[in-house]
Design a protein around this nucleic acid. Sequence first.
DNA 1: CTGTGTTGTTAACAACGTTAGATTTTCTAA
DNA 2: TTAGAAAATCTAACGTTGTTAACAACACAG
Lengths: 206, 206
Amino acid sequence: MPTSTRRARERARTRERIIEAALHVLETEGVGALTIRRIATDVEYSAPVVYQHFANKDALVLELVAHGHRLMLTEFHQAMQEPDVDRRMTRVASEYVRFAGEHRHLYQVMNDPVVDADERRRVVQPAIDALQELITTWSAAHDVALADPDQACKILWGTLHGIASLGHLGNVGNDRACRLAEQALHAILLGWRTEATANEQSTKGQ
Amino acid sequence: MPTSTRRARERARTRERIIEAALHVLETEGVGALTIRRIATDVEYSAPVVYQHFANKDALVLELVAHGHRLMLTEFHQAMQEPDVDRRMTRVASEYVRFAGEHRHLYQVMNDPVVDADERRRVVQPAIDALQELITTWSAAHDVALADPDQACKILWGTLHGIASLGHLGNVGNDRACRLAEQALHAILLGWRTEATANEQSTKGQ
DNA sequence: CTGTGTTGTTAACAACGTTAGATTTTCTAA
DNA sequence: TTAGAAAATCTAACGTTGTTAACAACACAG
């Protein structure tokens, strides 16, 4: 039955084309233009064929979200090339905000509260893990014992998202937002370092 | 013409009732349930009367956003009672995240990118100004010369929003998010202080 | 009491997500 | 090669959304 495998391949290909079309519409015209009929006509099908590949619109959108996070993660890996730990952190922070600015609408749906919380946590996890690991090596490099590394990661992640949102909400331009992220990161890391040395001093003193 | 003033009063009252109803639906059932027809039936009118008071749904939603920010500002003023500057900052940070958790859906639409950027900036400004002033008195109290106070304000605002979103996106519980916000704030302020003292040392040294 | 606005309702429009049924196309098997 | 099964696809429709037009009911001024 070689025909069935070909059919499966074609099926998968159409599914992929739908995702690509949806992604293109989203990125170029925003979430408001992302409708089932629009996507279908873009791939030269009628609307119902979309439902042969996705249970509903939310499922398709979730795929876009997952794609977005994979994309962001590759850009992270790019920034991870930097050998110096501090510069690496700075670049990741800057890269996060730059990504949010470059893919405005994609980033928006990536952090839209309407997509299921569990599903979103699932697709974000790899990026979170990358940041977590980066923080660990940073703290090791500077002899900083973080009280709660997981908490530190959440703080950094939240901060980056918040400053990226600042750019999104139109309060500030994107390159400006990148610099803000770097500044924020710098301040937080400096704060953690001084706190650590203060603890060290006090334990040495007793 | 006393009748015309009474009519105007009644008109204003219905407008207010519409806003109240919309707010109630939003807070109790989320943004998905916020439809014109639902609001209209809740105030015992037919749908089109809403359009006698608001140009369209966006205008009504904008009113909710403005209301939300006024509400948040009053909670800020509550927290501002605290005499100690550092504790005041901590309380404001915690209060911000607490508000976001207590009024999930309202906060969500308050920071929804679909509402017009200019309009949103307008309604957020008072709260931003309050934070700006708080930062100024803090920096004065600690002899910390912020390089760019406006930038510092944006960083703090963004950080708070980001960590509040963390709670929103289901990554973390709300009370946990409050503590995260306090930790983040603490780290940033500590970072700024040590940076300032470092600058002071270097200028003294030369 | 009679006309004149204001206020409200009903009915409808286009667009949305989504489903059912019919139809065409594609493959299998005799 | 062709009859029947299966898969793929389309058209048509449903219910809901925001929004508008046309009309009815009411309050008020002369």
